[in-house]
Design a protein around this nucleic acid. Structure first.
Length: 224
DNA sequence: GCGACAG
DNA sequence: ATCTTGTCGC
């Protein structure tokens, strides 16, 4: 798989922000997909003593949640960690990993935000627009926005608000467990995104997609 | 000036 | 993200 949109990654922070503002206009916030048979999980891990990073993509069969394919790519980071410019750090290796993938997914779940972002263009939206594939942003913590604590029951959620608009959902995936931050990435509605995340998280706080990707990425990195 | 700040 | 063991609780 290759991106349908190409752009330079070796750019300044100012240029990165401008690029986000341009591409954010292409994000589609409604359901735009047919049958979803395969769902992809994406994650990246960093080496503690070098600039090495490993990106992993796992493909799960949507009904059984079983892993049917996985790829990993080792790379080096060249962009600093700047809140809001996350995709410019992690997307390069992720895109290389996608080029090695045999099974095209109909949905991608990212470890990070979608439009729940200062310029409404987090990692999940960036990846979704580049490949024009439905994506969901699923973060463990908040980047921007205010919210009320959702009820303690699995499936409960509250809206994540910023500047008067809904930018995501704070979703409880397990009873009495800290909620996660779900947002539209591309070509999916917030309602469908939350429903999918809930379906992908039958037993743990995080969806199986990111759990499998996280497990794989740390196994390959050998950081212990 | 002082916090906040995806991973 | 990474640095890090045991420990409190169901």
């Amino acid at each position: 798989m290759e991106p349908i949109i190409q752009h330079q990654w070796n750019i300044s922070e100012i240029e990165a922000i401008h690029l986000q503002q341009m591409l954010a206009k292409k994000v589609i916030k409604e359901d735009q997909f047919a049958k979803i048979n395969y769902v992809a999980g994406v994650d990246v891990a960093y080496c503690k003593h070098s600039d090495n990073i490993v990106a992993a993509i796992v493909i799960l069969e949507a009904d059984s949640l079983q892993v049917v394919e996985s790829v990993t790519v080792r790379d080096t980071v060249d962009f600093p960690y700047v809140p809001g410019l996350f995709s410019f750090r992690e997307l390069p290796p992720i895109i290389k990993a996608f080029s090695q993938l045999k099974t095209p997914p109909q949905l991608i779940v990212c470890d990070g935000q979608g439009i729940a972002h200062p310029r409404r263009f987090g990692l999940a939206s960036h990846l979704g627009v580049l490949f024009d594939i439905p994506t969901i942003g699923c973060g463990k913590t908040r980047l921007v926005g205010e919210f009320q604590e959702p009820d303690l029951k699995r499936g409960s959620y509250s809206l994540l608000m910023d500047d008067g608009e809904v930018i995501g959902g704070v979703l409880r995936t397990q009873d009495n467990i800290k909620p996660i931050f779900v947002s539209i990435g591309h070509r999916i509605s917030l309602t469908s995104a939350c429903a999918w995340i809930l379906k992908l998280s039958p037993k743990f706080r995080l969806p199986e997609t990111t759990r499998q990707a996280d497990q794989l990425v740390n196994k390959v990195l050998c950081n212990k």
